[in-house]
Design a protein around this nucleic acid. Sequence first.
DNA 1: CGTATGACAACAA
DNA 2: ATTGTTGCCATAC
Length: 115
Amino acid sequence: MDARTRDVVAVLVALAPGEVTTYGDVAATAGHPRQQRLVGRILSLGGTGVVPELPWWRVVNAAGRLVPGHEREQAALLRAEGVAVSDRRVVDAPVGRFSRRPVDRRSETPGRSAP
DNA sequence: CGTATGACAACAA
DNA sequence: ATTGTTGCCATAC
């Protein structure tokens, strides 16, 4: 794998449970802004031998949308880590960037439905 | 080499 | 909120 791939993989494997990020943020954090598509491509290669197994479910698009085609599984994996998911999208997602924001559920904002 | 495609993103209408 | 357009970058043909 080339240098860019290495950088992106490094960021991905560093994602902690309960931590959700976006393609764009992973790319930027890896030092390769505007290479979101590369991130998606690498994630799709996870575990195929060219790159190690990656926590693909902790990456969603900028709108908090889950991966097309893997929504059920992704939702299950995320919820298992304490991430709220609703209707194919991550709940605590302030549309834009919720990068590196370890889902903080302070004292149970009873709202999320009533902020 | 030109064109199309894709686990994306930002913006206009 | 949804649908199109544009911009981006790596690949596949």
